[in-house]
């Protein structure tokens, strides 16, 4: 099996080993070699192309080489995306996870998404121009946050911000998909599956926490 695909950080791998020993450890210890072999036979290769993508169709390769955003729009997506999901001690930001590239691809893949995105970015720039006499990416970080604050909370946003709120809701969802489906995001959120294993039920610690250890 290609270890590269399952590369996880040391901290996460320690966590994983602990959990694995809770869930499958007993089974594996009965006859570890045999079980390990049985599981490894279930690997599946996806030949990789450039950018780490696998099994791409010609149409998709072509879309990857096309551009939808202008340089200015792409920079706006980059800056705004990093405001939505910034880096912290556990993982990088939206840009590190390839979010701008993902959003651009989706614009080409599903053209019905284009107008709301392009129009929303334009709405953002006009807000910035009216308030601070600069396009969004040329505002100071404090000014950018001031605008984002006004559109990031649907329940309390002013009525005149409604188009910006709708845009930001969609944008937040795009960033979330792009970030959490990236390798970095998946490691961060600790999705520990997508590998051959032997299912022995959840860890006892989890069942105890849910109060269902005695449910049979």
């Amino acid at each position: 099996m290609d270890n590269k695909k399952y590369k996880i950080s040391r901290r996460d791998s320690l966590r994983y080993i602990t959990l694995a020993s809770m869930s499958t450890g007993m089974f594996l210890s009965c006859n570890p070699e045999e079980k390990q072999t049985e599981v490894e036979e279930h690997g599946h290769e996806h030949p990789e192309t450039a950018e780490g993508f696998a099994n791409l169709s010609e149409e998709d390769l072509q879309l990857l080489n096309e551009k939808f955003f202008t340089d200015h729009e792409l920079e706006t997506v980059r800056v705004l995306g990093n405001i939505v999901i910034p880096a912290d001690d556990r993982s990088g930001n939206a840009e590190d996870a390839g979010v701008p590239m993902f959003i651009e691809f989706m614009m080409l893949d599903q053209p019905m998404l284009q107008i709301p995105m392009r129009g929303g970015l334009k709405w953002l720039d006009l807000q910035a121009l009216n308030r601070f006499d600069a396009e969004f990416i040329n505002c100071t970080p404090e000014q950018q946050i001031e605008i984002v604050e006004d559109i990031a909370y649907p329940e309390v946003a002013k009525p005149e911000m409604s188009q910006g709120v709708a845009f930001f809701n969609r944008f937040r969802d795009f960033v979330a998909t792009g970030f959490w489906t990236s390798q970095m995001g998946i490691e961060d959120i600790q999705y520990l599956g997508n590998k051959p294993t032997i299912w022995e039920g959840p860890p006892k610690e989890w069942l105890d926490k849910l109060g269902v250890s005695d449910i049979t």
Binding site: H46, Q110, S182
Partner: peptide, 17 residues
């Protein structure tokens, strides 16, 4: 099929296009 494929191995991350 696409067994064990990760979403990031596709530029559309599994979208139902």
């Amino acid at each position: 099929g696409d067994m064990f494929k990760w979403p990031y191995q596709s530029p559309r991350r599994g979208a139902p296009t």
